[in-house]
Amino acid sequence: MLAHFTNVITVFLMVAGLFIITARGNLIKKLVGLSLFQTSVYLLYITPGKLIGGTAPILSPAYTVYSNPLPHVLILTAIVVGVSTLALGLALTVRIREAYGSIEEDEILALDHSVEDDEARESH
């Protein structure tokens, strides 16, 4: 029952994240969506590895029930990757704000188009 429950959350986070990425034009919000999306993966990996009442894998006869450590370790790496992606994305957003004066996708696109029009006019 619990496994089922976590899967629902996983899928909800996944879809919510993807939705934010596509539906929002604000570059920061998109990154928030991306983070949510990546977070769902952490759940996907960790929940099946966790046993209720299980401990860390300690080699001792006292503990017989323990969680699988490997998914935890993997997700530690994935979290690092996620954080760096977010950091890089935010850094890019700062630079974009400096260059365009906006972090709204449609405004940036409009600025780009006007530049392209200028370029085209220049060349003709």
């Binding site: 570059l27 991306l34 974009i96 530049v115």
Partner: peptide, 11 residues
Amino acid sequence: RALTAAYQYLI
């Protein structure tokens, strides 16, 4: 536009 291209690719 390199910045937006990089951002787009990042997403």
